[in-house]
Simulated assay, not measured.
Amino acid sequence: MSRIRAAYWDPDGARYGIPTYWWRGAPPGYATRRQLRAAGLRPGGQPIAAQVLWRGVGGTRAAYLYRVDLARPKRTATPAQRAAIGKALAARRKCPTCGTVRPYYIPRSLGECLACAYPLEDAA
Results as ranks from 00 to 15, higher is better:
residue 105 Y to D: 08
residue 118 Y to C: 14
residue 9 W to D: 08
residue 67 R to N: 06
residue 61 R to L: 10
residue 78 T to L: 10
residue 19 P to Y: 01
residue 14 A to M: 11
residue 63 A to V: 14
residue 119 P to R: 01
residue 17 G to M: 06
residue 63 A to N: 15
residue 31 A to F: 07
residue 103 P to Q: 02
residue 42 R to L: 01
residue 77 A to V: 01
residue 124 A to M: 12
residue 90 A to K: 11
residue 84 A to S: 08
residue 101 V to C: 03
residue 102 R to P: 04
residue 70 L to H: 05
residue 97 T to K: 11
residue 6 A to R: 10
residue 115 A to V: 04
residue 116 C to F: 00
residue 104 Y to D: 06
residue 71 A to M: 12
residue 38 A to T: 14
residue 63 A to I: 13
residue 15 R to E: 15
residue 98 C to M: 05
residue 24 R to S: 14
residue 64 Y to K: 02
residue 88 A to L: 10
residue 19 P to M: 09
residue 120 L to P: 13
residue 6 A to Q: 12
residue 63 A to K: 11
residue 50 A to Y: 00
residue 117 A to V: 06
residue 57 V to Q: 15
residue 55 R to L: 13
residue 57 V to R: 14
residue 95 C to K: 04
residue 30 Y to T: 10
residue 74 K to V: 12
residue 70 L to K: 05
residue 21 Y to N: 01
residue 10 D to C: 08
residue 96 P to I: 05
residue 46 Q to E: 05
residue 116 C to P: 00
residue 94 K to C: 15
residue 13 G to D: 02
residue 2 S to D: 11
residue 5 R to C: 09
residue 37 R to K: 15
residue 64 Y to T: 06
residue 32 T to S: 10
residue 8 Y to M: 08
residue 76 T to V: 13
residue 98 C to F: 09
residue 116 C to M: 03
residue 86 G to S: 01
residue 89 L to R: 15
residue 77 A to Y: 04
residue 30 Y to S: 09
residue 14 A to P: 08
residue 38 A to D: 10
residue 108 R to D: 07
residue 41 L to H: 06
residue 95 C to Q: 02
residue 44 G to R: 05
residue 72 R to L: 06
residue 100 T to H: 04
residue 121 E to I: 11
residue 93 R to D: 09
residue 21 Y to H: 04
residue 95 C to Y: 00
residue 85 I to R: 13
residue 21 Y to M: 01
